[in-house]
Simulated scan of single mutants.
Amino acid sequence: MTLLLRVLACATVLLAPLEGYLQEVHPHLAKVAPGLLIVSWVAQRVRQRRWPAPHQLHALLALFGVVLLASSAVHAGDQFTMDYAQRFLPFLVITAVLVDVVAREVPVRAVLGAAVGGALFAALGALYSLVFEGEPRATGPLEDPNDLAYFLVVALPLLIALPARKFLLPVGAVLAAGAAATFSRGGGIALALAAVWLVARRGVSMRAVAATVGGLAVIGLGAVVFAGPVLDRALDEKKYIAATNVDTRELRWQAAARMLAANPALGVGPGGFRSNYAAASRNAEIDEQQPVAHNIYLEIGAELGLPGLACFLGAVALAFVATERVLRVSSDRRPMLAVQASLIAALVASTFLSEQYYLPIWSLVAVAIAAQVRVEERERDACVARHQ
């Protein structure tokens, strides 16, 4: 059963960025690994008669769930409420399950490696879609290039935690090339800030950063030489989209802020941003009446109110606190510095995207808390041993 939990936990993380490919095979195939993980975890804990070690995150996730259900009940008549509530709630459950599984059965590096592996496959798909399928911007396993960039830039900092050093450079090159092929400005900003954090915390050296930048320059030069027409078309497409995105995102952020101000207690319900956008924006976008907010903080706040937003930010804050506690006592700093940098990349990228329905932030929070639980259990065992 332990092996099964390890496989399912890693599969859940690895397959997350490949959701689009899985849905092409069957609409519900992407739910199989998480569903089996939850069922197997429950069966294992019942068999062992052993339940998760309590942590503040469990209370926060439970409160988040209560807010989500209460908001859903109040806005049950909305056309999107039940669908989005059913999409959101499993992420809270999966986060709690991953905390316990990674704290007991699955090594932290195995989960981080699974995240990198899934992103690597997604990056290869991204490059294939751009070069061979003629897409103006890389999509691959995800319909939106910006969502794809989110997965790739969040995975890149995790490379410093992996032991297989000789493979890191080529894997990093593929991830970076795939992210660049999406032409996502938010992804670029997120990755730059994550790199600054790693340098500041001495997770990577300036020499490594310089070598990475040089490698990206070589890749870019090769792309210009061998795929010039494709790049020209993609850049023209991006210029057109970029000018539109700046205006539309400002409109959507303003609309989300109005919804939050008008409904601070429980928001407008899960998915309510879409159904209320036309009214809140005063029909600012005639051709797009039901969009997403393109900002995770404003969208969660608008849909679940201030309590929901506080729960989300509280979970992220607990993750950062947990990583710092682990760093103080750990001889190997790389895994937790990698998690911190990836969280920063995810949070920055989510300023321009609505990513609460994708796994990276939730899995990173889970890994951070699980690492803290591991350390605390070792300290308790050592304390007991000293007193015997």
Rank of each mutant, 00 (worst) to 15 (best):
A180D: 01
G220H: 11
G222I: 00
L61N: 05
R137Q: 03
V111C: 09
Q388D: 15
G118P: 00
L313D: 10
A179V: 13
Y358K: 09
Y357A: 05
G305M: 14
P107W: 03
Y128W: 02
E135L: 10
A119M: 09
R49S: 12
R386F: 03
L304T: 13
I94S: 00
D287P: 03
P52M: 04
A181P: 06
V154W: 03
V218I: 08
V25L: 07
P17K: 01
A30V: 13
T95G: 04
A265F: 14
L5K: 09
T212E: 04
A211N: 13
R374D: 08
C311N: 15
L68H: 06
K238E: 15
Q388N: 15
A319T: 08
D100A: 02
G172Q: 13
G215M: 08
V153F: 11
I361T: 08
L89I: 10
P27V: 14
E135G: 01
T2A: 11
A149V: 08
R334Q: 07
F167N: 10
N283L: 10
F80P: 12
V131N: 02
R386S: 09
A164F: 10
S281C: 15
G188D: 00
A62W: 11
Q289E: 15
V204W: 07
V42D: 11
V106L: 07
E19V: 10
A164T: 12
V42R: 02
